[in-house]
Design a protein around this nucleic acid. Structure first.
Lengths: 228, 228
DNA sequence: CATTCGGTGTCAGCGTGATGTAAAGGTTGT
DNA sequence: ACAACCTTTACATCACGCTGACACCGAATG
């Protein structure tokens, strides 16, 4: 994927240096030497990410960002010579995604750009697998519910956690100590039968099938039978 | 939104300092003093974002991140004393979202955490404000009124806020702490039953149906039953 | 094979903390 | 002063996680 980056920077030398580096790294680069041109290009919806210097000849990079944020959520990385930490806070408050002090290492700039683009790609893919399905069971984290054949199971908070962990590892064994940590949030102590009880109750609510959906792996833990 | 941050840092003093600061800033904080505990907690799906030190007593923070990335896209901010730029590149390549060198200004840490969480919220935002109708209820923000079957409900100001928040998240659980913050504009303190009262009154005004339109999710919050 | 022992299944009851709600108290605006 | 309404108090209720007790089972041991 060829990402389009908009470089807003008034120092010609630095801008051309970065442009060349970014191009070599596989980006498609657009350039602007002042705030107004930058804002105009950014609003043109022809780029995926913006690298924005704060000190610009016409309007401040922060103002460019403010205008941009009035309309879009375009990812923006601020670039600046000022090292003052208060400036950084302001940058983030105005809506920046990242903030790199000059002089910046081009490699770090690229790494941060890619991290940001990767994050966006991940987030937008989330909607797809948000509802996880395992055979006749469907986990809906937002509702905090698990459906069996589209009918909600009446689970308690802890039961939900336990089953959700087992499903997330469907097909493989989850050790009791891990299950305890992940679902109950505490360490498994000796003679603690709590987990066994929750498993027992879960099996009851899931319908005591044979073979059981939740298999016991003696001496180890439990495993949700992967649907075939 | 009360965000849950997991703090993985072996230096007790620094960890507690940051934990306190983050709590003051409205985060709900979980802590781990080594890599294994941190990984375990992170996999437990009980937090929204991770702050991860690289130098840990047992396994490297980078290895923790690698393991995490095998399963999840949980946002991770690396924290480290090393200033070497090569390290940063590696951090990003392994899947970090941000990288802050120590000593870090807590304010900057919070700003970066919030920027990252904001980015995720933006990316995942679907068309929210389009439909302001939920079954037989219709929200009209301009008049601060909610209509049931085109007849206005006689709601007090606070009741309107509470119901409007619940409707905006119809179908998902709204944590009590968030509901308090969003509708009442203040922190939920222990033994504060105000919210419960407003819910009780709302249910009365909405007609005490069965199943109730406003469902209780014990230990978490409430959720408006999505009309089917 | 019989015995032992630790791991597991589960019933029933307890205790704690969360929730529902009536009523009283306090605050604000008119 | 009065009404409206948010908040607090108080009490009843309930959900549910947890534990003790006992039965059962499988593996190891002699």
């Amino acid at each position: 994927m060829q990402n389009r980056v908009l470089l807003v920077e008034d120092d010609d030398e630095l801008r051309q240096l970065l442009a060349r580096y970014l191009t070599n790294q596989g980006f498609s680069v657009r350039e602007a030497a002042n705030g107004n041109d930058g804002l105009s290009l950014a609003l043109g919806q022809n780029c995926d990410i913006v690298v924005l210097d704060i000190m610009l000849p016409d309007i401040s990079g922060l103002d460019v960002l403010r205008s941009l944020r009035a309309d879009t959520h375009l990812p923006v990385v601020l670039l600046t010579a000022r090292g003052d930490e208060t400036d950084r806070i302001v940058g983030f408050e105005v809506g920046a995604d990242d903030y790199i002090p000059k002089p910046c290492n081009p490699r770090e700039l690229v790494a941060r750009l890619q991290a940001l683009l990767r994050r966006i790609a991940w987030d937008q893919a989330v909607e797809v697998d948000a509802a996880r399905t395992y055979g006749d069971l469907r986990v809906e984290p937002s509702h905090r519910r698990i459906y069996q054949d589209d009918k909600p199971l009446e689970l308690t908070a802890t039961e939900y956690e336990v089953l959700q962990v087992l499903l997330a590892h469907a097909g493989s064994v989850v050790r009791k100590t891990d299950l305890m940590q992940w679902a109950l949030g505490r360490r498994l102590e000796a003679y603690d039968r709590t987990l066994d009880m929750h498993i027992s109750n879960l099996r009851k609510k899931l319908g005591n099938d044979d073979p059981p959906r939740i298999e016991t792996v003696r001496g180890l833990g439990y495993s949700y039978r992967v649907p075939t």
